[in-house]
């Protein structure tokens, strides 16, 4: 046996022996790093935030530019902005998604144009929406810095994403259902509302929940539209400060604001984690309703 074949054999046995392990290590390290970073941020915010956290923090108004007191008015503003966003976004995205997914006589060109526009809009940085909202709602439509302007701006921001997820949810409903419905002489209305939309509902709800998460964590689009007054808004035309804006302001502009910023961030984080949990559950339910065989393997 000469040394060359022996070398070959050695290297072969090396890769055979260590190949899978090496791959595991190489792919495992980045995964660990990512999970570790997430864990670190989570632990940091919860550690610093939860020490400040109490029922009183949620129910009392901010004092001393937010250094003292709680975030009750901030929560009210956030919920009002979110409410406006949802009132606009749910019907509009539903109608658009149905139109895109279910229309029979379709112009391929027009559809492609709409989809591409939506994708571009969905990828736009939120500051762009903030500036647009400021120019259009606050200035042009004379709403000023207000809850209404903020909610409408957020609606513009999450609509593209929500339309696309809803459209995909509707498309994911198997055509077999539509064929069965047509063969029974069911109207398109019945087919849509009794069969297609219920089947698509969990996946659409998951998209909605993710959109809410995105709206809740938005700062840039709101600073220039709903403003940063910490007072409780009395109407939709008052200015109000959303949670993420509050965190930003405390951390960047208020010396000594860090503890309360942490507490607010912890609150927001917990809400987002809950929302994500809901989204995951809904997605799983969506999989089950459309593909019940999964249930058996469960």
């Amino acid at each position: 046996m000469n040394s060359e074949t022996r070398n070959d054999r050695l290297s072969l046995s090396f890769s055979r022996r260590f190949g899978p392990e090496l791959a595991t290590v190489l792919t495992g390290i980045p995964a660990l790093v990512v999970a570790g970073m997430f864990g670190w941020i989570l632990a940091d915010i919860l550690y610093h935030g939860l020490t400040q956290f109490s029922w009183a923090f949620l129910t009392s108004a901010p004092e001393d530019a937010g250094r003292q007191g709680g975030i009750s008015t901030i929560l009210v503003s956030t919920l009002m902005i979110l409410g406006i966003t949802l009132i606009i976004v749910v019907p509009v995205s539903l109608a658009t998604a149905v139109e895109l997914a279910e229309r029979r006589s379709r112009s391929v060109r027009f559809d492609r144009l709409v989809r591409r526009s939506l994708d571009v809009l969905a990828a736009c940085p939120s500051i762009v929406f903030g500036l647009f909202g400021n120019a259009f709602f606050c200035v042009y439509l004379k709403m000023g810095y207000s809850i209404l302007a903020g909610g409408l701006t957020l609606a513009c921001m999450v609509l593209p994403l929500l339309i696309r997820t809803s459209e995909q949810a509707i498309r994911a409903v198997p055509d077999e259902y539509r064929h069965a419905a047509a063969s029974l002489g069911l109207s398109r209305w019945t087919t849509l509302f009794r069969i297609v939309l219920p089947a698509a509902l969990p996946a659409m709800a998951a998209g909605l929940v993710l959109s809410i998460g995105r709206a809740l964590s938005e700062t840039a689009a709101l600073i220039f539209t709903s403003g940063y007054v910490t007072r409780s808004p009395e109407s939709l035309f008052d200015s109000g400060r959303a949670m993420s804006v509050h965190i930003y302001d405390l951390a960047m502009n208020v010396p000594g604001g860090n503890p309360r910023a942490y507490a607010t961030a912890a609150t927001l984080l917990i809400v987002l984690l809950v929302i994500n949990g809901i989204a995951v559950r809904l997605t799983r339910i969506a999989g089950l309703t459309l593909n019940p065989s999964l249930e058996k393997n469960h």
């Binding site: 198997p174 077999e176 259902y177 064929h179 069965a180 419905a181 063969s183 069969i195 219920p198 089947a199 309703t289 459309l290 019940p292």
Partner: peptide, 8 residues
Amino acid sequence: FQKANPFP
């Protein structure tokens, strides 16, 4: 149809 397609 070939594939049974009861509604969900």
